[in-house]
Simulated scan of single mutants.
Amino acid sequence: MRQTELHLTDEDRALVDEIRSKGQHQAREVNRAHVLSSLDRGVPEAQIMAVLGVGRTAVWRTRAAYLQGGVELAVFDVARSGRPRQYGTDDEARVTALACLKPPAGRQRWTMVELERVARQEPGMANVSRETVRRMLKKTISSPGAS
């Protein structure tokens, strides 16, 4: 197997050693730090793969990321794009509080449709859907109208 040399700077080596020695990182970050450290010491890729239990592409990607952008890019996950949450924890708390209120007249407990209707009257929640209300309650392990 072809071995491409990789030499860490003294600062990068200190950062990699810090990541490897502290238990405050995710397992894949620690594995990537071990890969960089091993490559720096000239350990063959086959041995790195066997000892760390990672695949060849993980070793290659870690090396390529380091050469492209340094330790930060090689070890830590890049933030992924995604749709931001539409309703925050305050909105979830308001829906949960609504579900804890006394149900409408003639009902023993809230239905999702009724809870959705009442939640839509809250400021900033005009477009909330029944499914969103259900998911908010599921997070808090609440069931509408149960006491």
Rank of each mutant, 00 (worst) to 15 (best):
residue 143 S to R: 11
residue 116 E to T: 11
residue 68 Q to C: 10
residue 110 W to M: 03
residue 109 R to S: 09
residue 52 L to R: 01
residue 3 Q to E: 03
residue 114 E to P: 09
residue 71 V to N: 05
residue 109 R to D: 05
residue 93 A to R: 12
residue 145 G to P: 11
residue 101 L to M: 13
residue 133 V to M: 04
residue 8 L to P: 15
residue 133 V to K: 00
residue 35 V to K: 00
residue 83 R to D: 05
residue 35 V to A: 00
residue 141 I to E: 15
residue 56 R to Y: 03
residue 114 E to Q: 13
residue 62 T to E: 02
residue 23 G to V: 06
residue 2 R to W: 11
residue 20 R to C: 15
residue 68 Q to F: 04
residue 93 A to M: 11
residue 126 A to W: 12
residue 133 V to E: 04
residue 118 V to E: 13
residue 27 A to S: 14
residue 2 R to Y: 14
residue 12 D to H: 06
residue 80 R to S: 15
residue 96 T to W: 15
residue 85 R to H: 09
residue 114 E to M: 09
residue 132 T to N: 07
residue 100 C to I: 09
residue 138 K to Q: 14
residue 116 E to I: 04
residue 40 D to Q: 03
residue 49 M to G: 07
residue 38 S to C: 09
residue 9 T to G: 13
residue 7 H to F: 09
residue 49 M to E: 04
residue 63 R to C: 01
residue 102 K to G: 08
residue 15 L to H: 10
residue 19 I to V: 04
residue 51 V to D: 08
residue 47 Q to W: 06
residue 42 G to A: 00
residue 133 V to F: 06
residue 103 P to R: 01
residue 48 I to Q: 00
residue 72 E to C: 11
residue 83 R to F: 10
residue 76 F to T: 02
residue 115 L to A: 02
residue 134 R to K: 06
residue 91 D to K: 09
residue 135 R to S: 10
residue 127 N to M: 14
residue 69 G to L: 04
residue 100 C to M: 14
residue 92 E to F: 13
residue 88 G to H: 04
residue 91 D to Q: 11
residue 21 S to F: 06
residue 87 Y to L: 01
residue 79 A to S: 10
residue 140 T to P: 12
residue 132 T to E: 07
residue 41 R to W: 12
residue 102 K to V: 09
residue 142 S to W: 12
residue 74 A to C: 05
residue 50 A to I: 05
residue 137 L to V: 04
